[in-house]
């Protein structure tokens, strides 16, 4: 397994899938394929490719921004998904948002308390 900072998110895995399937591919082509397949615009795809490069999953070869997968498919397995939860990017914009709007996570005791409330009021 790679160190956890190199974990790939689903979106990044999607890029990798294209490379695993087609071998070395130009970034432009990846963008075209994924625009068709999942509706990403070019900027989104390029952002993700750059993130993969940063994580060491893709090598960029010039000319033509050719992308080469550096990690084999087998190495990236679903086993990592549990850990991903740690890196949750909360939907509420930012940490301040989250704090303001009370979108923080609860402990299991708190969850239990909520269940009790439902039971009582039912």
């Amino acid at each position: 397994m790679q160190p956890s900072k190199n974990k790939l998110y689903d979106s990044e895995l999607k890029i990798m899938e294209v490379l695993w399937k087609n071998g070395d591919t130009k970034a432009k082509q990846i963008a075209e394929i994924l625009s068709e397949e999942v509706g990403w615009n070019i900027n989104t795809t390029y952002t993700l490719i750059k993130r993969c490069i940063k994580k060491g999953a893709i090598q960029r070869i010039e000319p033509n921004f050719l992308c080469r997968p550096l990690i084999p498919k087998e190495q990236v397995q679903q086993a990592e998904t549990e850990e991903l939860i740690n890196k949750i990017y909360d939907g509420s914009a930012d940490k301040l948002f989250a704090a303001l709007l009370g979108r923080k996570r609860l402990t299991s005791e708190q969850i239990e308390k909520l269940r009790e409330i439902v039971g009582e009021l039912e």
């Binding site: 939860i85 740690n86 949750i88 923080k104 996570r105 609860l106 402990t107 299991s108 969850i111 909520l114």
Partner: peptide, 9 residues
């Protein structure tokens, strides 16, 4: 809420 809470300490 529970699924969200995951491993949060």
């Amino acid at each position: 809420e529970e699924r969200k809470s995951g491993l949060s300490p």
